[in-house]
């Protein structure tokens, strides 16, 4: 275990090398909590685009995200954690100022 605590958003992926020797597997069917090795980012077809200029940081989009994929940025405004957003659109639906729009994912 290394790096940031597993509970600190945006809950970064951890490097994980698949076992190649029998002795390397856990001694029972168990693993460290928060062992995140694979992104869910490939699930989504839409991306929540946030009009941050008008955002007052009420936090409802963070509250209603089932995936913990909306996090605070350094300016106290919401930001999408790309590894965990599945594009469900709950954040957009619950934004009281309608500042989030589900749209095609921006190409990097």
């Amino acid at each position: 275990m290394s790096g940031a605590p597993v509970t600190a958003p945006p809950c970064a992926l951890r490097p994980f090398a698949r076992e190649t020797q029998l002795a390397a597997w856990p001694a029972t069917p168990q693993a460290d909590a928060g062992q995140l090795v694979a992104s869910n980012g490939g699930w989504r077809s839409l991306w929540p685009a946030i009009a941050l200029d008008a955002c007052n940081g009420c936090g409802l989009c963070l509250l209603f995200c089932p995936d913990g994929a909306m996090v605070w940025n350094a300016h106290g405004l919401p930001e999408v954690a790309a590894d965990w957003c599945k594009g469900c659109g709950l954040c957009a639906r619950e934004c009281p100022k309608d500042l989030i729009v589900m749209q095609a994912e921006p190409t990097p």
């Binding site: 928060g34 869910n40 209603f64 995200c65 089932p66 995936d67 913990g68 996090v71 965990w84 709950l90």
Partner: peptide, 24 residues
């Protein structure tokens, strides 16, 4: 409600209500 997350990276379906309750 603290910023810490204790339920992230799950394979729940998009928009799942159960995972929302569990996360809260």
């Amino acid at each position: 409600l603290p910023d810490e997350e204790f339920f992230v990276g799950h394979k729940g379906c998009s928009g799942c209500g159960g995972t929302l309750i569990l996360r809260w």
